[in-house]
Design a protein around this nucleic acid. Structure first.
Lengths: 149, 149
DNA sequence: ATAACTGCAACCAACATAGTTACAGCTTGG
DNA sequence: CCAAGCTGTAACTATGTTGGTTGCAGTTAT
């Protein structure tokens, strides 16, 4: 079935919330509330984002998380590569038999194909910024508000 | 870590072997030998390929597997969609909180982004056929042979 | 000091995967 | 006709990953 973890979704969700917050900061508990999830989980994922230079954290009372750079300079790909190990299409579990013409060559060939395909996906993710996503969230909110009238 | 199963790799490997065989057929045991794996595993995956119309099987003594259409009409994407459930980038584990502006809108927006990204990957896979892959396997073999001289 | 945070290690249950065993059913060759 | 050699499938195991949780040490503002 499915495959990859939901870490990318969590990361993008959190980044969008932080962009919404602007200059201020959010705690892992606040973000976990919106995710209906757990503060520790959020801290784990935001920790990866911090390692990638996307967010920063401050410890102690009144601490929390905030964006380390402008939301228009953070793409979905940035979030993705920060929290996920790039290999989506996994290769052979074991190296195939060296006694088979196909077996001894397919590995290297598949590697190229799969890498290119994964890169195509990442390039698509790279075309949407967190700022743009937040923009659309707010547009959807306005839509809702006017529909409720 | 990784994510997806190695079913695509196995499927493509098997299809390439069948293309190499041409008109004849291969048994699941022969394919499993090249994969250093198990006949049952191979039958499971080839079963999916048969459901997708890519290969056909004949039961009983002398039976086995063969391509159901020309290898130039089978792409890596065909193999991929036959054995894998399309969702690579998984969505939120739980639907996010409805009480949060971001939470109640991000799901639908991410769905679009992720779908597009997955489609970009599939389109890249669609550009390589099994025939082309086999061609490259054989080219690599010739390379090896001439290097050994 | 104490409250409110992050950071981190150590768990747990649930699930998916690769691999295996066992066996029923089909088909061909002798 | 019967045995050999296949597919088809169910059942089971070991392993790894994931989302989730608890507990606690360290840090900082009030």
């Amino acid at each position: 079935m499915a495959g990859l973890s939901s870490r990318s979704a969590v990361a993008i969700h959190a980044l969008t919330m932080l962009a919404h917050r602007g200059e201020g900061s959010l705690t892992s508990a606040e973000i976990a509330d919106s995710l209906e999830s757990n503060p520790v989980l959020v801290r784990r994922i935001l920790g990866s984002l911090r390692n990638a230079g996307l967010v920063s954290s401050t410890e102690g009372r009144g601490g929390g998380w905030s964006l380390a750079r402008a939301s228009r300079d953070i793409t979905l790909r940035d979030a993705y590569v920060a929290v996920e190990e790039g290999r989506i299409l996994s290769r052979h579990a074991h190296p195939p038999s060296d006694a088979c013409e196909v077996g001894r060559n397919i590995g290297a060939l598949l590697e190229v194909e799969f890498r290119d395909a994964e890169r195509a996906m990442e390039e698509r993710l790279d075309r949407t910024t967190i700022a743009r996503l937040l923009q659309r969230v707010l547009a959807a909110e306005r839509e809702l508000a006017s529909a409720d009238r």
